[in-house]
Amino acid sequence: MGSIYLAIDTEKKGRTKVGQTSKTGRIRTTQTENPDYKLQTEYILNQDVNIKLIEFESHKEISKKYTRIFHRAKKIPSEWFECEVLQAEKIIELLLKNKNFHYSKKVWYEITPLPPKNRLETIKKHFNNQYISESNIEKNIKEIDKIKLKREMALAKDIFIAAKNNNPRAQGLASHFYNHGRYTKLDPKKALSLAKKSAVNGDGYGQFQLGEMLYHGSGCPVDKEQGLYWLIVSANNGEINAKSKLRMIQSREERNMSFFEITKRKAEGGDINAQHDLSKIYASGRLVKQDIELSNFWQKKYQNNKSKYIK
């Protein structure tokens, strides 16, 4: 039992993530540090299935019609596709139907969204508390968004100017903008350069930015050791983002090792799905040190046992 979930990044329009989890999509998406990451749809499978295999086949089917996005640093296919959620839903639902899988669908977005109360209060404030009919709500929200964006752009402009004048905090913030393509063009190398300047001048946020970029290999090769060093320095300086990131890394490492040990135990006990998973783990080098020889060994075991199982 597990779930296939669809998520979006509200800052990057026209992109959908297709992932899998043995828990629930809601738990999985709350584990990310990105505040713009939102769960949209979840398919909960009601029988004992290899959820990773279903995810693989979902990626394969969606790739036939839509472009798959690659990791900037690792240069490998990601779980993100250049398509809308509804387009991905159609493909996944057809796949599950053809495989005769029983599932329940949860939708986390609203089909006809209405603005929250606090959003309406903001609108009323800008429009002198006058009565606003529902027909004008969408129009007014767009106008508020334009006002908000203009303010943000003006603030960002001041930050870029201060960064040029060697203000350490501004350099850290500008690094974030360049790294994520916010208010300017995406430029990870420039982001890394600004983060280094900010970090060596003692700014906690700049140290966090540098640590995160080194750890994930954004604008540079992956260097987890140096990345962790700067994250720890930043956390010691009281930076909340760094503390949160370190907790997340620790939690992920513990989960990864637990998953690896369980998978290895199952594979040694003859579970063919676990043998296939273990082969991929050794090939990727994500949870343990890459070992192509062991990967080939478990892939061969999987193929042999699979052919026996089919007979």
Score class of each variant (00 low, 15 high):
273 N>R: 00
58 S>Y: 00
271 D>F: 00
55 E>P: 09
9 D>M: 01
99 K>D: 05
84 E>T: 09
251 S>M: 08
288 V>M: 09
155 L>I: 01
293 E>S: 14
207 Q>F: 02
282 Y>K: 00
187 D>N: 15
75 K>T: 09
251 S>R: 12
203 D>M: 11
299 Q>I: 01
308 K>E: 15
166 N>G: 07
162 A>S: 02
50 N>T: 02
310 I>L: 15
90 K>F: 06
203 D>S: 12
233 V>M: 10
47 Q>M: 10
303 Q>A: 15
185 K>S: 14
120 L>Y: 04
186 L>H: 14
209 Q>S: 08
222 V>Y: 13
263 T>M: 03
50 N>Y: 00
245 K>Q: 14
61 E>N: 13
52 K>A: 05
109 Y>W: 12
161 I>L: 02
240 I>P: 13
196 K>T: 14
156 A>D: 01
175 S>Y: 06
202 G>N: 12
282 Y>M: 03
24 T>W: 09
153 M>G: 01
248 M>A: 10
25 G>M: 04
232 I>E: 15
171 Q>H: 01
137 I>W: 15
179 N>E: 14
14 G>A: 05
237 N>E: 09
49 V>E: 04
304 N>S: 11
285 G>Q: 02
178 Y>A: 00
250 Q>Y: 07
51 I>N: 02
89 E>Y: 05
115 P>D: 12
28 R>N: 04
138 E>Q: 14
224 K>N: 13
299 Q>D: 14
278 L>C: 03
123 I>F: 05
217 G>A: 08
129 N>W: 09
107 V>R: 14
287 L>Q: 08
251 S>H: 10
